[in-house]
Amino acid sequence: MNPPILTARDVHKRFNGGPQSVEVLAGASLQVEAAQSLAITGASGSGKSTLLHVLGGLDRADAGSISVCGRDWTAMSAAEQGAWRNRCVGFVYQFHHLLPEFTALDNVMMPLRIRREPAAAAQTQAAEMLGRVGLAARIHHKPGELSGGERQRVAVARALVTRPALVLADEPTGNLDADAAQVVFDLLLQSARDHGTALVLVTHDHDLAARCGTVLHLSKGRLRPPGDFA
């Protein structure tokens, strides 16, 4: 039996600022297998984005353990974390964070070039991925020449081009109209099904969340099935 792609156990995170500290995560735990889709819901300000950043090694937990593809973030140096993240994790955010001066093709090539893959091979893989998300005719357009839905599809292609074991998506459809949101969400679910990618999605859209295999609700720093908070 293969080990989980992502395991978080009793994760705590506190922010210190102003007259008092705020505990955002108070023992959050989860486990995600290959090809599993997990949606995390919760009220605004409940710590969903913080949790995603901690799961992806972009921020450190104060306590607890987080293992991605068999390695614990806390046991790695910053350089090791960066290399492991590039190898195993893809990120998609509400705002696409594309580099405006580069074409769609160049943006999607970026993670591959960071891996030091040859330019020709990176270009081929990036073009193929853009074709998969329906943008074969737009690869030489810059972000400013694309619609909001097209820009987010480029962001999804960039996250998936390295074929990561885990994709972390933070409100990836929150800035899109309903039709564009469905397209982007379908692409993420299809990657989970076709390539065994583990998907963790933060969303306020309960209809989209319900399409994931598992739904957890974040409240008071802990994750539980939605009914437990009723």
Rank of each mutant, 00 (worst) to 15 (best):
H12T: 04
H12A: 06
H12Y: 15
H12E: 12
K13I: 08
K13R: 15
K13T: 13
R14V: 14
R14T: 15
R14D: 14
F15W: 12
F15S: 11
F15M: 07
N16M: 10
N16L: 11
N16F: 07
G17V: 01
G17Q: 07
G17A: 10
G17K: 01
G17T: 03
G18P: 11
G18C: 07
P19Y: 02
P19D: 02
P19G: 06
P19R: 00
Q20G: 00
Q20N: 05
Q20T: 10
Q20V: 07
S21A: 14
S21C: 02
V22G: 06
V22I: 09
V22S: 14
V22E: 13
E23N: 09
E23K: 00
E23S: 13
V24Q: 09
V24W: 07
A26Y: 04
A26M: 08
G27E: 14
G27V: 11
G27H: 13
A28P: 14
A28S: 14
S29D: 13
L30E: 05
L30R: 01
Q31H: 10
Q31S: 15
Q31E: 15
Q31I: 06
V32Y: 02
V32E: 12
V32N: 09
E33S: 14
E33N: 15
E33G: 07
A34R: 14
A34Q: 09
A34W: 08
A34D: 10
A35Y: 11
A35G: 12
A35P: 12
A35N: 11
Q36A: 03
Q36I: 03
Q36E: 15
S37C: 01
S37Q: 03
L38E: 09
L38N: 02
A39P: 08
A39H: 06
A39S: 07
I40L: 15
I40P: 10
T41I: 10
G42M: 06
G42W: 12
G42F: 08
G42C: 03
A43N: 12
A43S: 13
S44I: 00
G45T: 00
G45Y: 00
G45V: 01
G45R: 00
S46A: 15
S46C: 05
S46T: 01
G47N: 01
G47Y: 02
G47K: 00
G47A: 02
G47H: 03
G47I: 00
K48H: 04
K48Q: 12
S49L: 03
S49G: 04
S49T: 10
